[in-house]
Amino acid sequence: MPLCSMENVTKTYRLGSQTVEVLRGVSFGIEQGEFVAIIGPSGAGKTTLMNLLGCLDVPTSGRYMLSGRDMSNLTDDELSLIRNEHIGFVFQNFYLIPYATVFENVLLPTLYRDHNTNEAAKLASRLLEMVGLQERDKFRPGQLSGGEQQRVAIARAIINNPELVLADEPTGQLDSKTATEIMKILARMNQDGKAVAIITHDVNIASYAQRTIRMEDGLIV
């Protein structure tokens, strides 16, 4: 059974009186522990696909299964819980909370579930060590470089041990050397058994993936 699968998923948005069909029947799956890259020109529907994969949004029609569960008819609270437990997000702009320390940013997802504070703190320290930022745990995001911020975001994405990590242009704001470091960290996470899906338009970045899914005009081609 794949980790997640989409069957004939469509997504339309209403823009005033117009309806825009962003996804026009997408079917594909991601296996446990797989590393896939979703590439395509802007406007192809990559981010919308990512939002659906990440349970930030629900399909207009079709079916999305994650870990054997249908995501189409869940309540907002249920979707929140799914995101918290099963999915890790890495964004192009890092999106760390500016007034919290690095350490607290990593801990953030654990606040929204029943957790053992001590264990979560230990885990956060371990993850910061893994991304090479254990010395900076008391820093604020503003005091870090872009690459460092993204490493904090990655640590945050995996603290709840999700099966799927979604990265939307994770290297978009970084120079190529730093981008390579970030990709290596993502690749190592994948080797540790997590499925990773990255959205990119950079072919070099896509080359880290085992499989590339190309999108064009709301369809997988």
């Binding site: 907002d76 609270d77 929140s80 918290n84 437990e85 997000f89 964004f91 997802p109 709840n160």
Partner: peptide, 16 residues
Amino acid sequence: TKEIGIRRAIGARRRD
């Protein structure tokens, strides 16, 4: 807004 968005994305419910 961004902070709220990111909190929601990583699992905060509306009531949180």
